[in-house]
Simulated scan of single mutants.
Amino acid sequence: AENLTRALKGESKMQGNWGELVLERVLEKSGLEKDREYSVQQSFRREDGSRSLPDVIIHLPNGNQMIVDSKVSLTHYERYVNAEEAQQEAFLKEHLNSLKKHVEQLSAKKYEDIYEIESPDFVLMFVPIETAFTIAINTEPELYNKAFEHNIVIVTPSTLLATLRTIDSMWSNEKQRRNAIEIARQAGALYDKFEGLVTDLTQVGKRMDEAKNEYSGAMNKLVTGRGNIIGRIEKLKKMGAKTKKSLPETILKRAEEANVSGSEELDL
């Protein structure tokens, strides 16, 4: 409370710094991520070459941006709160005039004319103290509508937080939509890869079957067929061919059985 009192009694720059601090606290609670969903004190160049420095730029999922300005003087509000009842009416009038003046100044900045950003036609004017706006709107109900006519929407911490939470929900839906599109794309690519793998494995299976058939044919000539090569080569050894090695007994036995079986078939 003491810090707030000192800020409100201080110079305009101190009030501005305090208002920006409150605005940042609201942004932190909104769920939006700094430098991604919103930017602070980002500089822009106008078409005439001049520079503009909005307090906060809120980035919307559709590519547009929303500008928030928190430069509001609350000196007269502080004096109204702490004044005697006889003096309150005068300070309240000054407080209203201060808000109206800021609406006019904010409208004159023409933030919507900044060509580097796609901005909505209205700007959010942030009043960091709820009761400062409540007292003003209760005294002059048309204040909000008059500001809206200048493309200015007056917000407080609670109403701004509700707006930012809505924007955060929009971002969540947009991220889910983008993820759904990416999942569909990845699923399609995975299906195509799987189809290619199935085709390749089918070809490998066919080639394995072909190789197996060729192997069986070669083994038939070499070992298992009648008049196989193994039997003939072994006869050469028995007839006196000089060799230093011998074929495996299992192979010789299979070759001999094949030749015997073939002879019996001929006898039959």
Rank of each mutant, 00 (worst) to 15 (best):
E174C: 06
W171E: 05
D168F: 07
A180Q: 10
A184V: 02
R178Y: 05
L197I: 15
L190K: 11
A189G: 02
R185Y: 07
I167G: 04
V198W: 02
N173E: 12
K175P: 00
G196K: 15
A180I: 05
L164Q: 01
G196W: 04
G188M: 08
R177N: 11
D168W: 05
M170P: 02
R177G: 01
L190Q: 13
R178N: 09
L190S: 12
A189Y: 01
I183A: 08
K193E: 13
I167K: 06
E174H: 10
I183S: 03
L160Q: 02
A187I: 01
E195R: 14
N179K: 12
V198N: 08
A184K: 15
A189P: 02
T163S: 09
W171C: 06
F194P: 00
R177S: 08
L197W: 05
Y191Q: 15
L164M: 02
I183K: 15
M170Y: 14
A189W: 01
E195Q: 15
A162I: 06
G188P: 01
R165E: 04
L164I: 05
N173I: 05
L197H: 04
N179Q: 12
D192C: 03
W171G: 03
L197A: 10
G188F: 10
I183G: 01
L190N: 13
T163K: 13
T163H: 10
G196C: 06
E174F: 12
I183C: 02
A187S: 14
Q176M: 07
Y191T: 12
L160S: 01
E182R: 10
I167S: 03
G196D: 14
R178Q: 13
K175N: 06
A162R: 15
T166A: 07
L190H: 04
A187P: 00
L160E: 00
T163E: 09
F194N: 13
S172R: 14
Q176L: 14
W171L: 07
A187T: 06
E174K: 09
K175Q: 06
A189Q: 14
R165L: 03
L160D: 00
Q176C: 05
K175T: 09
K175E: 13
S169R: 14
Q186Y: 09
S169N: 09
G188E: 12
N173D: 11
V198Y: 08
D168L: 02
T163I: 07
V198F: 09
A162D: 13
D192T: 15
Q176A: 11
A189K: 11
R165G: 00
I167C: 09
Q176P: 00
A189T: 07
I181R: 11
R185Q: 10
I181Y: 13
G188Y: 11
E182Y: 04
E174A: 12
R185P: 00
R178G: 02
D168N: 10
R185F: 08
K175V: 11
S169Y: 08
A187C: 02
I181T: 05
T166Q: 11
D168V: 01
L197R: 05
I183M: 06
R165I: 00
L190Y: 07
R178S: 08
N173P: 00
R178D: 07
I183P: 00
Q186E: 15
